[in-house]
C-alpha cells in the first residue's frame, strides 16, 4: 500500500486515514459486499433518476389502459406471436385478448396507473423511510443498550424503560401520536414532509427495543473480558472505552439489526399508510403496492412481483453490505 518514496507529508496523511483506508481495502475484497453495494446504488440511482428517465406520473389515471399486463407477458404467448406482441402490442388485444403497451412496460393497476412509475415513486418513499427509521432505531437502540450494559447504575432504569416500550400496544400509541402531532407537523412542514417525520419517528421509537436488549447483552459480556480490564488499567476513559473497545465488538448484532430493521420499517410503513396513519392514500410506496396487489395475485402476478422484488433486493443488498462492513471493521479479520 505504501510507495517506496514516501515524503513526510504522505506519512502524516496515511497515518490519519490509514484505519478507514484499511477498512475500505478490506471491504473491497468482500465480493458479496461489493455486489450488494452495487445493487443498492443501482436501486438508489433508479429511484432518484427514474423520474427523469421515465416521465409518466405515478398518480395519473389512464382509465382506458387499466389492468394492462406487463410487456413480459408477451413471452407467455405462442412462439409465432411473441414477435408480433413485442413489436405491436396494441394489436394483441383484438387477437388474443392480451392487453399490453410499451407505454406501460410493467403494466397498469386497476385504475390504469403506470406500475413502473409507481414502483419508482414508491421506492423514493420506502427507501427514505426505511433507511431513516432504521438509522433512528439503531441509534436509539445502540445508545440505550451500550449505556445500560456499560453503566450498572443506568441498567435498571433503562431496561425497565425498554420493557415499557415493548409492552405498549403499537396501534393505540400511533393513534395518539398522530392525534397530538399530525396537525402541528402538517402546518409547519406540509402534509408529505409532516407524514414523513411522523412516520419515521413512529417506526423509530417503536422498534429500537430489540436492538437495545441485544446490544446490552453483548456489552455485559464484553465488559468482563480481559482486554477491557487491560484498557482500564492503563487509564482509558469511559467514552474512549466505549468508542474504541466496546462498540467495535458489538458491531455484528448491530449490523444484523440494521438489515432486519430496514425490512421491518418498509413493511411497517405500508401497514401504517394502509390504516390511514401515514402518507395520503394515493401516494405509492413499495409496501402499499405489495399490500394492495395481494388480492390480484392470481390474475396479475406482476403487480406483486415487482414491488416484492424491490423490497427483497434492497434488504438483500443491505445485508451483504452489512456483512462486508462487519468483516472490514473487525481488526482480527482485517489483519489477515
Amino acid at each position: 500500500m505504501t510507495d517506496k518514496t514516501v515524503t513526510e507529508q504522505d506519512i502524516a496523511a496515511s497515518a490519519s486515514r490509514s484505519q478507514w483506508w484499511d477498512v475500505w481495502g478490506q471491504f473491497r475484497t468482500h465480493r458479496g459486499a461489493m455486489i450488494g453495494a452495487f445493487v443498492f446504488l443501482l436501486i438508489v440511482f433508479g429511484i432518484v433518476l427514474g423520474p427523469w428517465l421515465w416521465s409518466t406520473d405515478a398518480t395519473y389515471i389512464d382509465i382506458r389502459a387499466k389492468n394492462a399486463r406487463a410487456i413480459t407477458s408477451c413471452f407467455s404467448q405462442d412462439w409465432g406471436m411473441i414477435w408480433t406482441c413485442l413489436s405491436d402490442p396494441t394489436s394483441m388485444k383484438a387477437e388474443t385478448g392480451l392487453k399490453v403497451y410499451w407505454s406501460h412496460p410493467l403494466g397498469t393497476d386497476q385504475l390504469g396507473r403506470d406500475n413502473l412509475a409507481r414502483v419508482i415513486k414508491g421506492g423514493q418513499v420506502s427507501l427514505a423511510v426505511g433507511v431513516t427509521a432504521m438509522l433512528l432505531a439503531l441509534f436509539v437502540g445502540t445508545l440505550v443498550g451500550v449505556m445500560a450494559g456499560f453503566f450498572k447504575k443506568l441498567d435498571g432504569i433503562l431496561m425497565r424503560l425498554t420493557d415499557l416500550f415493548l409492552a405498549l400496544p403499537l396501534l393505540p400509541l400511533l393513534l395518539v401520536m398522530f392525534m397530538l402531532f399530525r396537525d402541528a407537523l402538517n402546518s409547519s412542514f406540509g402534509p408529505e414532509m409532516g407524514a414523513f417525520i411522523l412516520m419515521v419517528s413512529a417506526i423509530g421509537i417503536t422498534s429500537w427495543m430489540p436492538t437495545a436488549r441485544i446490544v446490552r447483552g453483548d456489552v455485559l459480556a464484553i465488559k468482563e473480558r480481559e482486554f477491557v480490564l487491560a484498557a482500564r488499567s492503563i487509564g482509558t476513559t469511559n467514552s474512549k472505552m466505549i468508542m474504541r473497545h466496546v462498540l467495535p465488538n458489538v458491531m455484528s448484532p448491530i449490523m444484523v439489526s440494521a438489515t432486519l430493521g430496514i425490512a421491518n420499517a418498509i413493511i411497517t410503513e405500508s401497514a401504517l399508510s394502509f390504516l390511514g396513519l401515514g402518507f395520503p392514500p394515493d401516494f405509492p410506496t413499495w409496501g402499499r403496492l405489495l399490500y394492495d396487489s395481494t388480492d390480484f395475485l392470481v390474475s396479475y402476478p406482476e403487480r406483486v412481483i415487482y414491488p416484492g422484488l424491490a423490497i427483497s433486493l434492497t434488504v438483500l443488498s443491505v445485508n451483504y453490505i452489512g456483512d462486508g462492513l462487519r468483516d472490514a471493521l473487525d481488526p482480527r479479520i482485517r489483519g489477515r
Binding site: 413493511i267 405489495l290 427483497s312
Partner: peptide, 17 residues
C-alpha cells in the same frame, strides 16, 4: 442467507396468501 433474507423481507400477509 438468501432464503432467510427473502423470508424476512416478504411480509406474512403475502406469503400466507
Amino acid at each position: 442467507t438468501f432464503i432467510s433474507m427473502v423470508g424476512f423481507s416478504v411480509p406474512t400477509f403475502f406469503t400466507g396468501v
